[in-house]
Amino acid sequence: MTIDVSAERVIPLPPERVAEYAMDWRHDAEWTQGIRTAELTRETDEGGFGVGAEITRTAHFLGRRIDYVLRVAAYEPPRLLDMISVVGPMPMHVTYTFEPDPSGTLARIRVQGGGGGFYRLAAPLLARQVRSSIDKDLRDLEHRLTRH
């Protein structure tokens, strides 16, 4: 993997509340940097969202449009959502975790990825941009959930 970055933030709400919102693909464009659209393009064999489901996202990152598909590899609400790219410009692995914390929920996002061409050459810049984006994602997640 070319990049491996993570960010974490304590959100002053219970894990169930944070995870319910953050794990719902219908909210991806509301709090995740660069995502313009997200669509459930493959349901689980049983129907709905869970292991085996696929989300197609359109994002803009470093001035480029990126279309990619993430397949759910693990889904254990309210603790874990783990997704791997099955279509896209580079291999990517995205993990969301939510753990109880004395002040609410310790929310973490980890992004691992790699690839050739532009993405290999831009790895140091890409890692900084991804870290900045996921830091902002967690800030936006907290603000969206606590603004009421």
Rank of each mutant, 00 (worst) to 15 (best):
118 F>H: 07
121 L>T: 10
122 A>L: 15
123 A>K: 13
75 Y>H: 10
112 Q>C: 08
105 T>H: 06
134 I>P: 00
95 T>M: 13
99 E>L: 14
124 P>Y: 12
100 P>W: 05
130 V>H: 02
136 K>F: 03
129 Q>N: 15
93 H>V: 14
81 L>G: 01
132 S>P: 05
126 L>S: 13
82 D>H: 14
81 L>V: 08
117 G>Q: 07
76 E>P: 01
91 P>K: 10
103 S>F: 02
101 D>M: 08
77 P>W: 10
86 V>Y: 00
141 L>M: 10
86 V>C: 08
108 R>H: 01
143 H>W: 12
85 S>Y: 02
138 L>E: 03
107 A>V: 09
126 L>P: 02
121 L>E: 11
123 A>L: 13
135 D>L: 11
138 L>P: 01
98 F>T: 04
78 P>L: 12
88 G>C: 08
85 S>A: 14
114 G>I: 03
147 R>F: 10
131 R>Q: 07
121 L>V: 12
94 V>M: 10
124 P>C: 12
81 L>Q: 01
143 H>I: 08
127 A>P: 04
87 V>S: 07
98 F>W: 10
112 Q>I: 15
141 L>G: 00
141 L>H: 01
140 D>G: 04
141 L>E: 03
78 P>K: 02
97 T>M: 03
122 A>F: 15
126 L>H: 07
138 L>H: 03
143 H>P: 02
112 Q>S: 06
95 T>R: 13
134 I>C: 03
83 M>T: 07
77 P>A: 11
87 V>E: 14
107 A>Q: 03
108 R>D: 02
109 I>F: 00
144 R>D: 09
107 A>E: 10
91 P>M: 11
131 R>T: 10
84 I>F: 03
104 G>M: 06
120 R>S: 13
101 D>K: 03
132 S>Q: 14
116 G>W: 07
